[in-house]
């Protein structure tokens, strides 16, 4: 079967499995949702028990489809999920979960995906230089710096950065994605405001992850530099630049790209702490608030969405990988 078709089928299997788990796990938890609603109603002194209570229970069960057999519930859940109908938020009823997700998405993608890609690009290039014998010796002085930084958790570095640059020096805003009171719209002043707000969170991600990319690249680069085709490239009289980019880096990047797929997939889930520290209105912030207010549908929606991002980024990398490494396609 065609490579692309196989990858696509794999993708849908992963998505359906994730949706299924999302369906099963809440139903394995003790207690039932109607009981929880009744409990809440009783606390407000609304329920009187007896026939009225039975009626309420029946009404709720019908409304949420709980009176139907489990497989019907499952099918309905599955079709809804695949149509990206993730239900209503409980805390912000009647807002739809997917609407909240799509509102938060650009912020997370903008902040985390861009800083992860920047970190990947910069780290990989720097790591390649660290292994390159003809690079300036000063490059290697950064090695301990990278090692220490990659050991620091990014939210801790985030807190330190906020304290230094926002609290003590007052150079940059404390948090949020834009100044309160401004209305998001496409114009330069707003864009600059967003960038100003993005610097600290992006920096905390960049600084703590760049070491990972640099050290990984340095390792694979050292291996590639020992390959016979590098000796032959040099024997051919190619310029150092050509050998570095087309022969050494090109090959050393391959395992890095695999790591990038995984890193991009965890961008959204990894964002929770950064977004909490910086009060950033992205997916992580959404999940954090949903968990705090026991907004089950929202949690379920965000979780499904996180699995989806991993699946999508792995799919994308799988699809472009044959272009990078011709040996993969069969």
């Amino acid at each position: 079967m065609n490579y692309f078709v196989r990858r696509l089928i794999m993708f849908f299997v992963v998505v359906i499995l994730a949706a299924t788990l999302n369906f099963i796990i809440p139903r394995l938890a003790p207690g039932d949702p109607i009981g929880a609603v009744l409990e809440e109603l009783r606390a407000r002194g609304a329920s009187t028990g007896g026939d009225a209570e039975d009626e309420i229970v029946a009404a709720y069960r019908a409304r949420f489809g709980l009176d139907q057999p489990v497989y019907m519930q499952y099918l309905r859940f599955l079709t809804n999920t695949l149509r990206f109908d993730l239900g209503h938020s409980i805390s912000y009823y009647p807002q739809k979960v997917e609407a909240a997700l799509f509102r938060a998405l650009p912020w997370t993608v903008g902040l985390l995906a861009i800083s992860t890609l920047m970190s990947f690009a910069f780290g990989s290039f720097f790591g390649a230089l660290m292994a390159w014998p003809r690079a300036p010796a000063a490059v290697n002085r950064f090695l301990p710096f990278f090692m220490v930084l990659s050991a620091v958790p990014y939210y801790l570095l985030g807190l330190i950065l906020v304290y230094l640059f926002a609290f003590v020096l007052r150079l940059l805003p404390l948090g949020g994605a834009y100044s309160s009171g401004t209305i998001p719209r496409l114009e330069l002043s707003f864009l600059l405001d967003v960038i100003r707000h993005g610097i600290l969170p992006a920096l905390s991600i960049l600084l703590t992850s760049v070491g990972f990319w640099a050290l990984g690249m340095r390792g694979t680069m050292v291996t590639v530099l020992g390959e016979d085709y590098l000796t032959l490239a040099e024997a051919k009289g190619l310029s150092g630049r050509r050998i570095f980019f087309a022969y050494a880096m090109r090959n050393a990047l391959l395992p890095q790209v695999t790591s990038l797929a995984i890193a991009l997939g965890t961008v959204a889930s990894g964002s929770v702490l950064v977004e909490v520290v910086f009060n950033y209105p992205g997916i992580g912030w959404l999940l954090y608030n949903a968990l705090r207010s026991s907004d089950y549908y929202m949690v379920q929606g965000v979780t499904f969405f996180l699995v989806l991002t991993v699946a999508v980024s792995v799919l994308v990398v799988d699809l472009i990988y044959p272009l990078l490494d011709p040996r993969i396609e069969r």
């Binding site: 390959e227 016979d228 032959l232 024997a235 310029s239």
Partner: peptide
């Protein structure tokens, strides 16, 4: 030296499987 390599003096590497860049 770089200019001299290959134009005056070329190399046939050990017949290993690894002398050509695998991705080019």
């Amino acid at each position: 030296m770089r200019q001299t390599r290959w134009s005056k003096l070329s190399l046939i590497p050990q017949g290993s499987m690894n002398s050509l860049n695998p991705v080019v």
